[in-house]
Design a protein around this nucleic acid. Structure first.
Lengths: 341, 341
DNA sequence: TACTTTGTCGCAAACGGTTTCGTGTTGATA
DNA sequence: TATCAACACGAAACCGTTTGCGACAAAGTA
């Protein structure tokens, strides 16, 4: 096992100083062609690579970015992560992933672990518990330390930083309008607890569409489901009690589950009832019938978030730009077979 | 914006030496109770946290582990990643994620980026291209440098290191036996190109089951599909040409797609035809009918991989243990509605 | 009084680089 | 021959911590 070779080794071996080696490897004009060639050849031979940690310490820049997300076994977050990773990698950055698992404590812990110099900046989406508690001190702390921070999707106005969000309200509005234009009268909204920022915005779009088309908003048409639970009974109950001819779900899992229940109850999709979901994942693409859904373009969102962050990181040298940008990713409605074309 | 505070700042402020501060914060016996108290109070007040990078450089240990996987938008890898992250975090390690995207070049690049001191060890699963090319020099390189390495799922015998694999052959055998016991006569195998180590092992299990039950192996019953492509036509073709009454698919996507095609062709599942897939993901759980599938216990696999790696990392101080362990994760067959109970 | 012990603390090297500045050698110029 | 610029390289500081060891004072011992 050959241990990692350092500048010191090369210097000793070639009988020059460490600084000469360092300069030679950076092709500095200070060093003669002969010496450079000799040193570079030796370095290549022994496969010398500068120690990243040492460089980080010296430069006060780690080329790492911390990504803190609530869940990784989830199509949307996964695609965002992918977008971040690809963009960051292209820019020479590595991505350290922390999964908060929707827990406030883990989110705080993760940020503390990483904010001691391990990363140059953070990209994150709030955990459910954080949104619920409305406690953002860990974010403010990080921001106060001058560590760049970008929030995406699940954001908060409490923290001054760059943000990347979806036009949730508008796309929900558009989806509901489409259902109304299909001739649907009783459009259900299947959503999560309201402390989710995004769910709220989607609800707003739902309401706005009804208002614009002068349709009544029936509170009973809103079904609240819980994540991580089997909701089939609740869904069946809901369909039995309410006359529903269209359903907008805030995620694809709910949509597919609702479709399943409806089918078992004998409904024809989309003849009797239409379905639209959020997130264009494998579920939507492979359900029977294929689900009309809102594509959130997670990869794009991730790339934009990474771009914002890296710009902040690299501009920081110049001056503190206090301006906070909020980029909006335009969602698109992908029409498939669970709605009428 | 308050910049990060260092030992030097504290030392200057309290008019003691840097080493005194360092020792005081570690509760060293060398320092008097008075001084310790004073320093600790000051440190707490200013929220001092040691700079991770400096500690890493000093200790030659980063508390980071690199995870290189072919795909993140994929249920199995996602769950493994989750398992790694949870275990590693509990042990005080952070996880740097690199997605090879099934590309050999990206895999090599990722490892080069990280092997310059950024991580204490690697956990990885080979990219498709790497398995195809059979080129493992980047892995050997890392191993030669003494950086601990653990391979999981897509492994190779070419590299001496710890491995975590599934009992692919046995569980495939078991699945096929189940189908035979259902009375199925023509069991199809839907798989990927054979350079995938795991696909091969699953094929072997398929064959072994046929052999054991003295059933003929019909080459025509094997359908090879390509990832990332729409295969519906090929599947339909296959079902039309071949008389098939059961299907074993090497992943859940293929299984769900095959079920969809079969249903459209008028087959009743599981009356006319049974389906078993691999990977117990959201597709399997939410398909119609729910898919009988092989649970790979990705999270467990990730945890075991992380455990092996961290043990290697932390034992390394003692001596080079050249022994390479191969842990086998026992897959389980989850019986749902796509097979007869 | 002289010497040793004990308790506190600082010095300095080390981790592996980068970079500024200085120094010695050469050859050209006056 | 004295002066000087150009060239090639080395010394040393620095990034923030850790840690072995030496220093120094107070206190104990002979």
């Amino acid at each position: 096992m050959k241990k990692k070779i350092t500048l010191k080794h090369i210097a000793r071996e070639l009988d020059v100083s460490i600084s000469t080696v360092s300069k030679a490897l950076k092709n500095s004009e200070e060093i003669s062609a002969d010496t450079k060639e000799k040193i570079q050849a030796f370095a290549k031979l022994y496969n010398y690579k500068p120690n990243n940690i040492a460089v980080s310490l010296k430069n006060k820049s780690t080329k790492n970015i911390g990504v803190v997300i609530p869940d990784i076994v989830h199509h949307f977050f996964t695609t965002v992560f992918r977008g971040i990773e690809i963009y960051a990698n292209a820019k020479g950055y590595n991505v350290i992933a922390c999964i908060s698992d929707e827990s406030f404590a883990k989110e705080v812990l993760s940020m503390e672990m990483l904010s001691n110099g391990s990363v140059d900046g953070f990209i994150m989406s709030l955990s459910a518990e954080t949104e619920q508690k409305n406690d953002f001190n860990h974010l403010k702390e990080v921001a106060a330390q001058g560590i760049p921070l970008v929030l995406f999707d699940r954001v908060t106005d409490e923290v001054k930083c760059d943000k990347v969000i979806l036009n949730d309200k508008e796309i929900a509005y558009k989806a509901v309008i489409k259902l109304i234009d299909e001739g649907r009268q009783r459009i259900a909204l299947v959503t999560t607890e309201s402390y989710f920022n995004v769910s709220e915005k989607r609800s707003a779009g739902y309401s706005a569409a009804h208002l614009d088309r002068k349709m009544p908003i029936d509170e009973d048409l809103c079904l609240i489901l819980h994540h991580k639970e089997v909701n089939l009974e609740a869904i069946k109950d809901f369909f039995e009690k309410q006359q529903v001819d269209a359903v907008l779900c805030v995620n694809e899992l709910f949509a597919v589950q609702c479709m399943g229940v409806a089918q078992k109850m004998g409904f024809q999709i989309p003849k009797d009832i239409s379905f639209i979901g959020f997130t264009d994942g494998i579920l939507s693409q492979n359900s029977q019938p294929a689900l009309t859904t809102v594509a959130q373009h997670g990869e794009k969102m991730g790339a934009v978030a990474a771009e914002l962050l890296i710009n902040k990181i690299e501009d920081e040298a110049e001056e503190e730009s206090i301006d906070c940008r909020t980029e909006i990713i335009e969602a698109t409605l992908i029409e498939r077979d669970s709605t009428i074309n």
